[in-house]
């Protein structure tokens, strides 16, 4: 087995960009009554401004926990989390999130679901009513971009899983977040829908370049989507390998079937295997 891989980056991550997200020596334990569960330990991660990076790793290694730290939903026990140059101490308002479960509100139409963040987040909240028309226009433009037609007035339960996930994606982007956190958003979709959505998200990112953290257990997905892929160890999680994926490897759908692409996936696979066999 290839167990000799160094636990340090082979190639420099975030090539020269200013870091937008920075986790330094972060540890986090769940539960407070002694028998706590150590989810992350000495976790270091740096994501450049506008970078698209993917986190892969064994199930339960702390990937979702990382997103909670980055978004400020949880505070670390030790170490620092810095986003946009500021220490994170409470939930950030500049993030958009999407999960495997679309979590749309069934009593709201797709349009009203997408507008929800604007009813909640400052500064839009105060002037929501006055500016509704403008927001609706923006939402419609987003629907268009993610390939949704005539869904505005339909309820989530009238949509397919893929369509719901697209609506969820629109909701995570409507307030134009600087940071997009995606926690296995394609995990529950069928293969064809999933591949369509890859291209949708990619196109959105190409256009706006919001800093993106994508969690996935699909290595093909990570290599196709992300500029940098970070492999996490088994729990307690930390980054054991970071790899930049050259842009020319993953321009079109066809690129996914090229030998170079397969080779990259294969190499990552070995690192993940290494993580599974040797919990740190």
């Amino acid at each position: 087995m290839v167990n000799t891989l160094p636990p340090t980056p082979e190639e420099p991550a975030s090539g020269g960009q200013r870091p937008f997200v920075e986790l330094t020596d972060v540890s986090l334990t769940y539960g407070d009554f002694g028998e706590g569960l150590l989810a992350l330990k000495d976790f270091n991660l740096s994501v450049g401004q506008g970078e698209f990076c993917a986190l892969v790793g064994p199930s339960g290694c702390g990937k979702s926990t990382t997103l909670k730290l980055v978004s400020g939903l949880r505070q670390p026990d030790a170490g620092g989390v810095i986003v946009a140059g500021k220490e994170v101490s409470k939930p950030l308002k500049i993030v958009g999130m999407a999960f495997q479960n679309p979590t749309l509100l069934p009593w709201r139409t797709s349009l009203d679901n997408v507008l929800l963040p604007l009813e909640i987040v400052d500064p839009h909240r105060r002037r929501f009513r006055k500016e509704r028309a403008r927001h609706v226009e923006r939402a419609m433009a987003l629907f268009d971009k993610v390939g949704l037609k005539d869904v505005a007035d339909r309820f989530p339960w009238q949509l397919s899983g893929g369509m719901q996930q697209r609506v969820s994606l629109c909701r995570s982007l409507i307030h134009e977040p600087d940071l997009l956190l995606l926690d296995e958003p394609f995990g529950a979709l069928d293969a064809f829908t999933r591949e369509d959505l890859w291209d949708t998200v990619k196109a959105l990112w190409e256009e706006r370049k919001f800093t993106t953290l994508l969690i996935t257990h699909d290595l093909t997905e990570s290599v196709y989507m992300a500029e940098t892929v970070h492999v996490l160890s088994a729990r307690p999680g930390r980054v054991i390998h970071s790899q930049r994926i050259p842009a020319h490897l993953r321009r079109t759908r066809e690129d996914r079937f090229s030998p170079a692409f397969a080779d990259t996936v294969h190499r990552l696979r070995q690192h993940v295997g290494h993580a599974q066999e040797n919990p740190s």
Partner: peptide, 14 residues
Amino acid sequence: LEPELADVLRSLGA
């Protein structure tokens, strides 16, 4: 309430 949904809302500063 689904925990993910609570996360979405809290991360918006709700």
